[in-house]
């Protein structure tokens, strides 16, 4: 009996391992392809045989102000977006978590509506609107427009973290003479730090890779990485250069994932 069960559990472990291994292969193989291509010269060039190992793609990135500049543009607009989103989402999440007020249920539905608004739907008017106020070609414009899908997500996540903090803490702090802003910064924020981290991760994730708004808002300048890559597509696409650029664009993402790993694993629940 014992042996039979240990045998079957051994089989089960093997099956799980095999399945997870397949998941790993499925996830990593395209990346492997990408890395190989990024170190390959994919266009005929003088002095390098096509298909040969080479670092020419990375040298090309450094040589092109458009490509290397786009990395800076991307980092600037994503940082702006994350900061704006968290700054406005924190008080909103606190309000939704702690107060009952007329229309509180509708606010939540409204937020979901914003999150699911397809970007393609908004492109045209956003461009016209931003052109009027001079936000086209600037990182601030992209940062602002990405708020439309990031603020709802941020409020959703932060609200659950704030709700996990017992309300007695608020009440004690207010009795001790804390004002709301001071309580927020001094006591609540340290407690929900990992929530802010998780939120920042999600905002980064949705903003860093976004294409539709980024294209419509960067006509002549301020192009982020995604748009710099778009300019590489053409009649004769240098796929090696595209992949090298993708590899570079993954580095900040990888760093963010690394910083956030413990918070993700620690777990969070969101409100339904």
């Amino acid at each position: 009996m014992m042996r039979a069960s240990s045998k079957s559990s051994g089989l089960k472990t093997a099956a799980v391992t095999l399945f997870l291994f397949m998941v790993v292969c499925f996830t990593m193989l395209p990346f492997f392809q990408m890395v190989v291509l990024s170190f390959t010269s994919t266009l005929p060039r003088d002095g390098i045989v096509q298909g040969q190992f080479s670092t020419i793609n990375f040298r090309n990135i450094l040589a092109s102000p458009l490509l290397s500049g786009s990395i800076v543009n991307s980092i600037v607009y994503v940082t702006l977006n994350v900061v704006i989103t968290i700054l406005v989402a924190l008080p909103a999440a606190y309000a939704i978590s702690r107060y009952r007020f007329a229309g509180d249920r509708h606010v939540f539905l409204l937020l979901i509506a914003f999150r699911i608004t397809p970007p393609v739907v908004l492109t045209l008017p956003v461009f016209i609107l931003f052109a009027k106020v001079g936000l086209v070609n600037s990182p601030l414009g992209i940062a602002l427009v990405h708020c439309v899908f990031n603020i709802p997500i941020a409020i959703w996540i932060l609200e659950s973290f704030i709700s996990a903090v017992p309300k007695e803490l608020d009440e004690t702090a207010f009795l001790d003479g804390y004002s709301l802003p001071r309580y927020f910064v001094k006591q609540l924020l340290p407690l929900i730090a990992s929530g802010v981290g998780v939120t920042a991760f999600f905002c980064f994730m949705f903003s860093w890779v976004e294409v539709v708004f980024a294209r419509i808002l960067t006509v002549t300048g301020g192009k982020p990485i995604t748009m710099a890559i778009n300019t590489l597509y053409g009649f004769r696409t240098d796929i090696g250069l595209v992949m090298a650029m993708t590899l570079v664009s993954l580095i900040p993402g990888l760093a963010v994932i690394y910083f956030i790993r413990n918070h993700i694993a620690k777990g969070f629940v969101v409100r339904s």
Partner: peptide, 11 residues
């Protein structure tokens, strides 16, 4: 598994 989420959508 989080890595593919960071790949630009157009690549």
């Amino acid at each position: 598994l989080a890595l593919p989420l960071m790949v630009p959508w157009n690549t």
